[in-house]
Write a protein that binds this DNA or RNA. Structure first.
Lengths: 232, 232
DNA sequence: CGATATGTTGAATACGGTCAAAAAGTGTGG
DNA sequence: CCACACTTTTTGACCGTATTCAACATATCG
């Protein structure tokens, strides 16, 4: 499913700053805690994640922040079809490697069809489903089940990217990040994590997640991984 | 932007039940309060809304429901790239006219490229942005501003479809529907609407919305319509 | 007209937020 | 290696928004 990355790798890409070759792609790398692009920018680029952790988020006028997605290896970030100000910001949490793609050239490539058009459409459909499930999560689950659902989704996505095994994976998010993902406060996230740990369901300590009782978690969160594979 | 509909109209479509001609498209019509397709179905179709109101929603194991989108004229509903069980249900609120499209034939058409591939990618990108903004809305706004934001978004989308003018439009949603859109309870939606009316901000009565003080609404909700035109 | 869905209101409750302070962890430079 | 600054985590007390439960009013529709 993450053939988008394979596709990129199988085409000529220049590592330097010159924007030429296939799709005007440039391989780039960002330092931890740096901002890749900012909401409102008009740079007309988009990204495909090669490795590392990133946050796609939206800053709200009232000072709040909503994290929209935590893209993983192979995910396309910031796709749009037309020129215009960027809707969301992307920040690197860890060292982050991406393909930096020209929006215009990519949309032209979609017009040309072929495997690339397929991969893009597939990714976009999948992202739609993920965002829809996030909506259901925030809108209709309480703090416990909401948090559980998030870590289950994360495990599934990381597994596909080969970054999780036996219900264990590294996760460099802070509790504050988590709060902005889940629509809670950092304080309440802390209490919720404590409770999940106390109930022997999952532990999140020092950047490491362990799903202790995956079965119970799946049941209480009503987690159904199908949306991650398909689309709306 | 809603050239997808124009595109469909400019190609041969049969009105009868036979699935043939361009993309295997069939024009269909649904009665008010009927269910167009149900979460879990494996029918491998998708829809493009021609007219009428519909709800795209997800039923949760705990009995809850989260409405993911209220598609309007020209919107594509239920897109996915691969076969598999449907993620969400679609129900008609009013009489609903749609193009019923074969998923397989549509994805093949994307492979072929051209204007259609562009329109699909554009629609998907736009839906991504809409869902992301819904996330921010539910996750980081209180009942008042959340409700205000929804009605502002709806006005904007209906305007584009020519179904709203001077801050007035018809909206057949019940307060219960509204609750499932906004991640609130019907009771609280009722109180919130009362307050919005009392403050001379907006009124929602008998299926009719009036944005009384649009300027104030935009300010308090931090509404920025740009996401509706572009993508993430 | 009666049945059912939708809207409205009140009172009590609970879940998560706010404020504040301290503890633990992390990184930097002297 | 330690001192210092800063971020992140943790906990307590209190508060407020939204939920729950229940009753009644009002539309809507066959």
């Amino acid at each position: 499913m993450q053939t988008l990355l394979q596709f990129m790798h199988s085409h000529p890409v220049r590592a330097g700053p010159e924007r030429n070759g296939f799709l005007g792609v440039v391989a780039k790398s960002y330092k931890p805690h740096s901002i890749v692009c900012h909401q409102g920018d008009e740079d007309d680029r988009l990204f495909i994640v090669k490795s590392g952790w990133a946050l796609l988020y939206r800053d709200l006028p009232n000072g709040g922040r909503q994290i929209v997605d935590t893209p993983v290896r192979g995910d396309i970030v910031g796709f749009r079809f037309v020129e215009g100000p960027r809707y969301a910001s992307l920040s690197a949490i860890t060292e982050l490697a991406v393909f930096d793609v020209s929006r215009k050239e990519l949309t032209d490539a979609i017009f040309a069809g072929g495997l690339l058009a397929k991969e893009i459409a597939c990714s976009l459909g999948r992202l739609n489903a993920i965002l829809a499930e996030h909506l259901a999560n925030i809108g209709r689950r309480n703090a416990m089940t909401r948090t559980a659902h998030f870590f289950l989704e994360l495990e599934e996505r990381l597994s596909i990217a080969g970054m999780s095994a036996q219900g264990r994976y590294d996760c460099p998010l802070t509790q504050h990040d988590l709060a902005d993902i889940l629509g809670l406060t950092a304080v309440h996230v802390n209490r919720t994590l404590r409770e999940l740990r106390a109930d022997d369901l999952l532990s999140f300590k020092a950047g490491h997640v362990q799903l202790i009782d995956r079965k119970k978690l799946v049941k209480m969160a009503g987690f159904d991984n199908e949306y991650l594979r398909y689309g709306l």
